[in-house]
Simulated assay, not measured.
Amino acid sequence: MVSVMAHAELIALLEVRLGEHYVAPPQAVAVDLIVSDCADASHRFTLGPMIVSTPIPSDGANYAVARITLSRAVLSAMLDDPTGFDPRSAAAMALGGVRVDGAERLAAYWLQLLKRPSAAARMALARARRRAPAVLATVPAMQASGGNDEHLPEHLHAALADTLDASIPLALRGMVDWPEVAWTLDDWHTHEGTTVLRTDPSSGLPQTVADFIDGFTTQRFADAGAATYTEGCLLPPAWEARFSWPTLPTHLFGAGQLWFGRASGVSLVTRLHCDLANSFLAQIHGRKRVRLYAPAQENAVYALDAFNTYRPCRVDVAAPDLTRFPRFAEAKGVDVVLDPGDLLVIPTGWFHCVWALDHVLSISRFADDETAATMLAARTLSPSSALNTLNTTRTG
């Protein structure tokens, strides 16, 4: 167990893990690791041509642009379970969580380098590359609102089974009919303002719905750098049953994640990545633009080899540096805009990034490929009938 290692052994293991899939940034930067209950394990990691760790200078010399604070228990859990750990998980939170100060993306990269895919994860990506089209010209769409069609659930379940079998994204228009889809931000503030969404990764303080709304609608809060996006935090426990998917069996999906924040303009609110499970993203408030790239384009989008439950990419789609990432010029993505009430199905391995066209609130849940197979087995129409009704064009 990592928890019983001597401090020197722990730091040596960190250096090895971080270095296995390390790609140097354009210029050297430093990340301070603060182990809150073990000062001797706290070190500075300089990310240059290679990763070098040193004791943190007591006088603050050579200022680090990011700082990660956690307990020895959290650090041990990360190193003991590289295929499963997630700093946002309930298990990590129970051990004290992870606090980040300074450059969040740099800290996220440092943490990402400790992750490793399981054999099952690699098999899931291989299946996705075999099944999915190399390029998708448009995202298929299906009107899912009930109307008077008594056979809609059968058509819907068949369409889901077929889209997961073929590894093709699917936009279900009007799928979500929760009353909250019609709420304004004022309604959210009034009815759910005191609901705690997460612990602030910088301050360690609880953040409520009202904190987020004030943070992205009030200039005073915005100027102070208030929180603007929840980054996929766990859904509050009281919301789990309330926001389960209509017509879809609850037991097939994992815990919900919440994506709530300010309109992003030309910047991304979610950077390019793929998930190692099938993602179901429900849009509740505002509009999002999602860009998708097929699994076979992993080299063109510079996907990292250090990952577990999701696989991030190094390139920034909103402002790509083609000098550093020349292959991205050949990447072919497809966009889809989600309105309130829409649900987007993103099969395993599809790379995607997100712009918030308005202030937005979304909920996502995941179903692994084994669960998708359950849906396939339960289909009520012939294998091709549902997809034949969709507005879809495939190329490649």
Results as ranks from 00 to 15, higher is better:
Ala6His: 15
Ala6Asp: 14
His7Ile: 11
Ala8Arg: 15
Glu9Lys: 01
Glu9Gly: 10
Ile11Gly: 15
Ile11Asn: 15
Ala12Ile: 07
Ala12Trp: 09
Leu13Lys: 15
Leu13Gln: 14
Leu14Phe: 13
Glu15Ala: 13
Glu15Asn: 13
Glu15Thr: 10
Glu15Trp: 10
Glu15His: 12
Val16Ser: 15
Val16Arg: 15
Val16Asn: 14
Arg17Leu: 08
Arg17Glu: 08
Arg17Cys: 07
Leu18Tyr: 00
Leu18Pro: 09
Leu18Gln: 03
Leu18Arg: 03
Leu18Asn: 06
Leu18Glu: 02
Gly19Glu: 08
Gly19Leu: 08
Gly19Val: 07
Glu20Val: 10
Glu20Tyr: 07
Glu20Gln: 13
Glu20Arg: 15
Glu20Phe: 09
His21Met: 11
Tyr22Lys: 06
Tyr22Glu: 00
Tyr22Val: 01
Tyr22Cys: 05
Tyr22Asp: 03
Val23Phe: 08
Val23Cys: 11
Ala24Ile: 02
Ala24Thr: 05
Ala24Ser: 02
Pro25Glu: 04
Pro25Thr: 00
Pro25Ile: 05
Pro26Tyr: 03
Pro26Ile: 05
Pro26Ser: 07
Pro26Trp: 02
Gln27Asp: 04
Gln27Ala: 01
Gln27Thr: 02
Gln27Cys: 00
Ala28Gln: 00
Ala28Pro: 03
Ala28Asn: 04
Ala28Met: 04
Val29Gln: 11
Ala30Arg: 12
Ala30Glu: 06
Val31Glu: 03
Val31Asn: 02
Asp32His: 07
Asp32Gly: 06
Asp32Thr: 04
Leu33Pro: 04
Ile34Ser: 09
Ile34Arg: 12
Val35Gly: 15
Val35Glu: 11
Ser36Ala: 10
Ser36Trp: 04
Asp37Cys: 09
Asp37Ala: 11
Asp37Ile: 06
Cys38Leu: 13
Cys38His: 15
Cys38Ser: 13
Cys38Asp: 12
Ala39Ile: 08
Ala39Cys: 13
Ala39Lys: 15
Asp40Asn: 09
Asp40Val: 08
Ser42Met: 09
Ser42Lys: 11
His43Val: 04
His43Met: 08
Arg44Glu: 01
Arg44Trp: 02
Arg44Val: 05
Phe45Trp: 01
Phe45Ser: 03
Phe45Leu: 00
Thr46Gly: 01
Thr46Trp: 06
Leu47Asn: 02
Leu47Arg: 00
Leu47Val: 02
Gly48Val: 01
Gly48Glu: 02
Gly48Pro: 05
Met50Pro: 08
Met50Gln: 07
Met50Tyr: 01
Met50Glu: 03
Met50Phe: 00
Ile51Ser: 15
Ile51Lys: 09
Val52Ser: 14
Val52Leu: 10
Ser53Gln: 13
Ser53Thr: 13
Thr54Tyr: 06
Thr54Arg: 06
Pro55Thr: 07
Pro55Ser: 08
Ile56Pro: 14
Ile56Thr: 10
Ile56Ser: 13
Ile56Asp: 08
Ile56Cys: 13
Ile56Asn: 10
Pro57Cys: 00
Pro57Val: 00
Pro57Glu: 03
Pro57Phe: 07
Ser58Asn: 11
Ser58Leu: 12
Ser58Val: 07
Ser58His: 12
Ser58Gln: 13
Ser58Ala: 14
